[in-house]
């Protein structure tokens, strides 16, 4: 990881926990807006889980969503690729735009939307199929590959991308469930990028992994950032600081504060943000 620390702000005085904000990432100019959420409200039956959330997610960067448990991070994430549609009784209002199009518009097919917006879940969930079949799943259902050779190429490319190729090249036809947790999570990432999505949503992708596996995934995220727009939910401040350029803090279903990661961690505007990142609650 590149590490140029040219910070002049004494962040240590602000954050008693030592969080090394990666200035190089954090200060990079954000790309154009990829996802624009405006006044998003989400209801589970009668229960409202999100209140008027408005957030911009820039292209070619990593945006981290942080906040205490149950504050609605996953809910927000799932409303971007309309995974909330699969939950009976869940209702989303407001606008979420992907490249200027409202994802909840009737003309948008969730199938296409989800092909464009990939998702990685908290617990690795490889299908009970071979490694190859796991990665080939998306290209197959969407008819992306025209032949066997092309499919193999896509699988190989995606696995390489996900940094898993070296480990599984010789066992492509063994079950994906036989891999270790960290490998499974990378397999799932490979599965998601096999359809070349524009956005990748990650819901606590490292929470089930040990530190070494976590480091590998973080490296991977950092590499993927060049081509994709990545939104990641994490409970680890350190992780958010390490991998993200933009951070949004959620609390009790509301978006409290969002801004460049460096600012959020060194100079939060809201006292709740400060309390949270300094570990006073959460």
């Amino acid at each position: 990881m590149p590490s140029q620390r040219d910070d002049s702000i004494a962040h240590d005085t602000v954050a008693p926990v030592h969080i090394a904000v990666d200035r190089a990432h954090a200060s990079q100019p954000a790309g154009p807006i990829k996802i624009r959420a405006r006044d998003v409200n989400v209801f589970y039956g009668d229960k409202q889980a999100l209140f008027d959330v408005s957030l911009d997610v820039p292209e070619n960067s990593v945006t981290a969503l942080i906040g205490p448990s149950g504050c609605g991070k996953s809910t927000f994430l799932r409303s971007i690729n309309r995974m909330n549609d699969t939950i009976p009784g869940c209702k989303v209002t407001g606008r979420i735009e992907l490249d200027g199009e409202d994802v909840n518009d009737r003309s948008i097919d969730p199938v296409v939307l989800r092909a464009r917006v990939g998702m990685v879940f908290q617990k690795p969930n490889p299908f009970p199929k071979t490694i190859f079949e796991n990665v080939a799943y998306g290209p197959r259902i969407h008819g992306i590959a025209t032949g066997k050779a092309e499919l193999e190429e896509i699988v190989e490319r995606s696995l390489k991308r996900a940094g898993l190729w070296a480990e599984v090249a010789d066992r492509l036809h063994q079950p994906g469930t036989g891999l270790s947790g960290g490998q499974q999570q990378r397999l799932v990432i490979a599965r998601a990028i096999a359809v070349s999505p524009e956005v990748i949503l990650m819901d606590e992708p490292c929470s089930a992994l040990d530190p070494i596996a976590t480091a590998r995934i973080e490296e991977l995220i950092d590499e993927l950032r060049n081509q994709y727009c990545i939104v990641i939910v994490t409970h680890s401040m350190a992780q958010a600081a390490r991998v993200s350029q933009k951070t949004a803090f959620f609390h009790l279903g509301k978006l409290v504060e969002a801004g460049p990661t460096g600012e959020i961690f060194t100079n939060p505007r809201d006292s709740r943000t400060q309390d949270y990142i300094t570990g006073r609650f959460g």
């Binding site: 690729n81 995974m83 699969t86 969730p110 199938v111 296409v112 939307l113 989800r114 092909a115 990939g118 998702m119 879940f121 617990k123 969930n125 490889p126 299908f127 009970p128 799943y137 998306g138 259902i141 969407h142 799932v188 599965r191 998601a192 359809v195």
Partner: peptide
Amino acid sequence: PQSLRDGSLAMGA
């Protein structure tokens, strides 16, 4: 497990 369904649906299946 629901997670398998979610995984597949999230792929656009």
